[in-house]
């Protein structure tokens, strides 16, 4: 009986190991809260999405098909959803072929890549790459 209270008292003291765990855990938690606050203060999220599509990589010809790589990047502040990228190939002013691609989510500064595939050589005509639409999530 006499032993019991003493044991309780000993249990009340945290061990070094527990202190280490707790300090690491609180460091992680404070770090995460700090980073979130940082992005909150810094965020230019009022800006709407600004979507830029480019094709700066060389096209490849495989089995008579022309692969045109593209890269779309969201330079705005907000996340865009269902980003629709459209490619048109005009030869002699006439739209010969079109391609379309949808990207589910594109958050700030995020980059997605893909390729359009045409059966005619895009270098013989005019290639138009553009973002046709998006929605806010």
């Amino acid at each position: 009986m006499n032993h019991q209270p003493q044991e309780d008292k000993q249990q009340q003291k945290r061990t070094v190991a527990e202190w280490v765990t707790f300090s690491i855990a609180s460091f992680i938690l404070i770090g995460v809260v700090g980073l979130v606050s940082f992005t909150w203060i810094k965020q230019p999220s009022q800006k709407p999405p600004l979507l830029v599509v480019t094709n700066n990589q060389p096209l490849r010809k495989i089995n008579g098909q022309y692969y045109i790589p593209f890269e779309v990047i969201n330079k705005g502040g907000k996340t865009a959803a269902s980003v629709q990228v459209i490619a048109e190939l005009r030869i002699n002013g006439k739209v010969e072929e079109t391609g379309e691609q949808q990207i589910e989510f594109l958050s700030r500064k995020e980059k997605e890549t893909g390729a359009f595939i045409f059966s005619q050589n895009p270098e013989e005509g005019e290639l138009i790459l553009r973002v046709a639409s998006y929605k806010l999530p």
């Binding site: 809260v33 979130v36 606050s37 992005t39 909150w40 965020q43 999220s45 996340t79 959803a81 989510f105 958050s107 999530p137």
Partner: peptide, 10 residues
């Protein structure tokens, strides 16, 4: 998670 605002995360 991707589209959450910092306020929602907090």
């Amino acid at each position: 998670g991707s589209s959450a605002t910092p306020a929602m995360m907090l």
